[in-house]
């Protein structure tokens, strides 16, 4: 079964434990400026929204890479950057419509979410369940359940 990250922004509190976990997992430091997941704060709406790579099936970044440095991980289906091949041309950062591939000046390479090899650190760190790692075919299950629950409580039109 392929799994994918599922984000429910309504549950997010903006604690940034996910960003901390990501930077620690991938860089061995606590440094949110190196995180591959970002939580945006829409102050006046009172909303916090976590955002990261959705692992497109036909990944724009992968298609754009001239040296074939972004490849599908057979185990997870993640589009992973192979740092030893990446030449830091940044074409993928332009190709990605969502901005989730980013250049790291320090290494001269790009980075993006690779699902941590199947155990995403952000999902593990999130205290609220805003980020979960679920069956890729059923990311809509929670929403369906919620709406189904609402339908169920509607009074019938005719008695």
């Amino acid at each position: 079964m392929q799994k994918s990250l599922h984000i429910d922004a309504n549950k997010c509190t903006g604690c940034l434990q996910c960003e901390m976990a990501c930077s620690y997992e991938n860089h061995g430091v606590f440094n949110i400026s190196k995180s591959r997941i970002k939580v945006f704060n829409f102050e006046h709406a009172g909303r916090k929204v976590p955002y990261t790579c959705t692992q497109c099936s036909e990944a724009w970044c992968m298609t754009a890479c001239p040296v074939d440095a972004i490849r599908i991980d057979a185990g997870t289906g993640a589009k992973a950057v192979h740092e030893d091949i990446c030449v830091g041309c940044k074409v993928c950062t332009i190709a990605c419509p969502f901005g989730t591939v980013n250049y790291i000046a320090e290494t001269g390479k790009v980075q993006k979410c690779d699902l941590c090899g199947g155990e995403p650190a952000c999902a593990d760190a999130c205290p609220t369940g805003a980020i979960t790692y679920v069956d890729a075919d059923w990311t809509g299950l929670d929403k369906m359940r919620a709406w189904a629950g609402k339908t169920d409580t509607q009074p019938r039109a005719t008695a």
Partner: peptide, 18 residues
């Protein structure tokens, strides 16, 4: 509107209101 956390907080006592 919602609750909110400070940095790193897994409690999230903060209040955001309208």
């Amino acid at each position: 509107v919602t609750n909110a956390a400070c940095f790193g907080c897994t409690i999230a006592c903060g209040r955001i209101s309208r």
